[in-house]
Amino acid sequence: MDVGYLAQYVMNGLMLGMMYALVAVGFTLFFGVLDVIKFSHGDVLTVGAFAGLATYLGLDLLGISSPVVLVLCVLSVSALCMALLGALIARYLVLPLRSAPPLNTLLITLMLGTVLRESVRLFYPQGANPKPFPALLPTDSVTMGNFNLRLDNVMMLFAGTIVIVGVHLLLTRTKLGLAIRAVAQDEETAKTMGINFKLIVLITFGLGSALAAFAGIMNGLYYNEINFGMGLLLGVIGFSSAIVGGLGNIYGAILGGFLFAALQTVGAVAMPFASAYKDVFAFGVIILIMAWRPTGLIREKVSERV
């Protein structure tokens, strides 16, 4: 195989992996603090992408055309709105069900996902159709043989890395991060140490949801298109990545995301004739991984190190 093609595939895989990792980190954060899975996470991503698109259209109407302003506004509005949405979900749907069977949390967030997805489809103007997403980043590119390195992709990878490193620093270097980790470790002890449990949960859900918004925008910029069903696929893949990495482990989630993207990319390279089956392949891999290592690939290694 040509080196150029290979580089192209690696680049695509990295982009996918970055998006999966961002979603997976969200799942891991939620599971960490509350031991719950928030199945609406993927659909929060969708809503985030659409909120970003709406922000762009609004600014466009106002005549703002500076790309830097546009990007910053789109990102911050979308991330803030989704952080709020995530906190609201935690406050009104997840926390009230704490004493109910865990199944109910799963069902309620799954149904909320449906409500969000359907709301986008029904209430966003022509929401049932795919929407073009504007190219907000410079699309200059360098071509080397068969490899076309686009500036916007490099910028997104860079931004994604910064976000993930930022979350990591937040968790490990700040008081807030310490509080989140304390809650994740042991809720009761954290409470007795004077940590406002509820607030920390809301902040964590807000943070995770903002990450989803970021991933949603990234998805829109990468494919130049968004649709109401995009979050379902990304949510399931993100969740699987989080599991592969051992739920509750942020490094595992990141690794899981890239691993999953690698698998998909390798699948696409190895079986070009079956490109139509790429999603079938992805879901098949998820089922196989669950059968093989239901508690994740990383966890055991970590416990050995402890």
Binding site: I37, L106, V236, S240, F283, P294
Partner: peptide, 16 residues
């Protein structure tokens, strides 16, 4: 698997 994990298996199958 249990609970959440089993749910994801069946969701993945439905989409597949």
């Amino acid at each position: 698997t249990r609970g959440h994990y089993a749910a994801v298996v069946t969701i993945a199958f439905a989409l597949l």
